[in-house]
Write a protein that binds this DNA or RNA. Structure first.
Length: 127
DNA sequence: AGTTTGACTAATG
DNA sequence: GCATTAGCCAAAC
């Protein structure tokens, strides 16, 4: 399957520069409900791109935030906010706190409590 | 065309 | 828990 191959011979001359993988990733992020977070790695996995966590970050960086994508609900595997240098994590933190998400003293969220696991799962995660 | 970089992560020590 | 390493891959040098 060609996930990075962009088809030139498509009916629409426009919008041919967006790889399928990016659309998949954005699609997953859009499903993160309010008050929950998801990790880069898990998003990649749900998008059918296991191991491509960095691609998720890249997509978010290049994607205009005007896409209705709840970018602020994406944190790293440690529950910390990962932001590009230059940007303050305060904004993302505020947005999450506004949804009822609490941060601990290490500025981390409790993934045990807030991680969105996409429908089913319901795996036993400690207590 | 080779190297570096990055909104990442799991595995080690 | 922190530092290092290795995998990852597309864009930027």
């Amino acid at each position: 399957m060609n996930r990075t191959k962009r088809i030139k011979s498509i009916e629409s001359p426009e919008m041919t520069g967006v790889p399928d993988s990016h659309m998949q990733i954005l699609s997953i992020i859009r499903q993160i409900p309010r008050g929950k977070v998801c990790t880069y790695g898990r998003i990649a996995m749900l998008a059918g791109l296991p191991g491509r966590a960095r691609l998720v970050g890249k997509v978010l960086r290049y994607s205009p935030l005007a896409n209705g994508v709840p970018w602020h609900r994406v944190v790293n595997a440690s529950g910390c906010i990962s932001l590009r240098s230059g940007e303050s994590p305060v904004r993302q933190k505020s947005l999450l706190e506004g949804e009822g998400i609490r941060f601990n003293l290490a500025h981390r969220v409790d993934l045990n409590q807030y991680l969105w696991e996409s429908r089913h799962a319901s795996k036993r995660r400690g207590k």
